[in-house]
Each structure stands twice: as structure tokens, then as C-alpha cells.
């Protein structure tokens, strides 16, 4: 069975490391990008089943990146994962498949990933 590939986009190195280790433990294959541009480049060259996208990032923020991703591939599944809870109610975040508030407790993120992927 082929491994599920997830692209993690976050400008914070340690967050990337934490999420990578946690999600790899779950059996996913993880790609990393530290900003929106990088993420878009990586999506051009490789296929990912899911993008986990931070919102507040320098340069191109998560919402912009989300729009760019969906422009290229409407079917690309994206989970927004941000420290800000209130973006959940922002219309522009609705384009994403789910919204998770960043937390040290990774259960919500893991559950949401499973839901979105339908596994």
C-alpha cells in the first residue's frame, strides 16, 4: 500500500519538526515547506494527498497560499492549522477542507486529518 503524503507548511522550524515526528509516527510520509512560495513549488513537482497549512507566515500568508493551491488544483485537500481560532469564522478560510487550532495536544489535528482523508 502506498504511503499517504502530507505537505506541512509552517514558518516555524520547531513546529515543522514536531508535526513531522508526530505525523510520521502515524505512518504518513511528510514533506516540509517553510512558506507559501516553497509550498507552491513543491506541489508543482510532487503530489501530496493533503496540505497542512499555517496561516500567519511572512511573504504569502496561509489564506493566499490556500487560494493559489485551489486555483491550480481544486481537488487538493488542505487543512488550515493556525494559532488564531477566530479565522474559523472567516469566509476565506472556508475554502479549506478543515480548520484546526494549533495545539500541543495533537489529537484534534490527527483526527481531522483522518476525517479529511476519509481513512
Amino acid at each position: 500500500m502506498e504511503q499517504i503524503r502530507i505537505l506541512l507548511v509552517d514558518d516555524e522550524e520547531h513546529i515543522r519538526l514536531l508535526f513531522k515526528e508526530e505525523l510520521e509516527e502515524e505512518g504518513y510520509s511528510i514533506g516540509l515547506a517553510s512558506n507559501g512560495f516553497e509550498a507552491l513549488e513543491m506541489l508543482k513537482v510532487g503530489e501530496f494527498d493533503l496540505v497542512v497549512l499555517d496561516i500567519k507566515m511572512p511573504g504569502m500568508d496561509g489564506i493566499q497560499t490556500l487560494n493559489e493551491i485551489k486555483k491550480v488544483n481544486k481537488e487538493q485537500r488542505v487543512i488550515l492549522c493556525s494559532a488564531y481560532g477566530e479565522f474559523k469564522q472567516d469566509f476565506s478560510s472556508w475554502v479549506s477542507d478543515a480548520y484546526v487550532v494549533k495545539s500541543a495536544d495533537m489529537r484534534e489535528l490527527k483526527d481531522t486529518i483522518k476525517n479529511v482523508l476519509g481513512v
Binding site: 514536531l18 494559532a83 494549533k102 495545539s103
Partner: peptide, 9 residues
Amino acid sequence: KNPLVVIGG
């Protein structure tokens, strides 16, 4: 929030 998530995680 971010460092906290890192610490907690």
C-alpha cells in the same frame, strides 16, 4: 502560542 505548542508537543 507557537513556542508553547512546541514545548507542549
